[in-house]
Amino acid sequence: MIEAEVTVARVEEAVAVYSDEVVVDQPERKVVMTLADVAVAFGGRTAVRDVTFDVHAGEVTALIGPSGSGKTTLLRALNRMHDTVRTAAVTGTVRLGDLDVYAPSTDPTLLRSRVGMVFQRPNPFPTMSIYENAVAGLKFNGVRKKSLLDEAAESALIGAALWDSVKDRMKAHASTLSGGEQQRLCIARALAVEPEVLLMDEPTSALDPIATKRIEELVVELKDRVTIIIVTHNMQQAMRVSDRCAFLLMGEDKAGELIEFGPTATLFSEPTDPRTLDYVNGRFG
């Protein structure tokens, strides 16, 4: 019985997702990143699987779902952060433009200069000054021209809404900043490399409400400059900042899977999958 229902729901979902794409009257943007059947396993245990969706340029795509649904695991697969974990295995296809992210010929360091990342907790480099933090990524990537460093640092700090408060103390240690400012410095640090995609892993989870609000505003402002994929467990946040949403849920075998993907408004107002409906109505975690 239940299985049958699920199957029916799945078919409906597939149809609905398809029709949603047609219904939505937003300009069809370029696809910068595609995920096809992406799965991540650690030591043979699948953590997340069955993820297929496109990320559109100039948009904010949110990954939502209760804890344990594999949002962060999925996000970290997109810039090959799992490379350091020996037992981790990523299957399926991730493409950045024409680049196959997991092709043997793809260099992970070069990939990461095109796909930036902001973490849950602000992690500026404590031994570096604000300026050094801002240009750290550029220096890692072999940029040595002072004029380019300065220009990129300024532009990134302006982009992260931090320039006005730090322009007079660029030599101060990053630890002199407040938590919210540190997180914006981390965003600036990632922006300075001018990545095409910026991955944000619950960037406000360690911040107070006011700092959270500023980061959310920033996310919306920045999407013209960089395509953003943001993990959040806060549905309101996803509604406020994202254009499209991917909803993940932990399956019976403890592995997260993609339940539904679509424009944020649709996903929250008329979800096609009953489980999505349950989640947005607050019936899970």
């Binding site: 260099d107 200069s113 990537n141 072999g142 380019l148 532009s155 490399v193 001018e194």
Partner: peptide, 22 residues
């Protein structure tokens, strides 16, 4: 946006040309 794109090109060029050395 143009300035951004231009800088992105310069940075990515630097990144790939220095990759071997790095």
């Amino acid at each position: 946006v143009d300035a951004t794109t231009e800088r992105r090109r310069a940075i990515q060029a630097a990144a790939s040309s220095s990759l071997r050395r790095r």
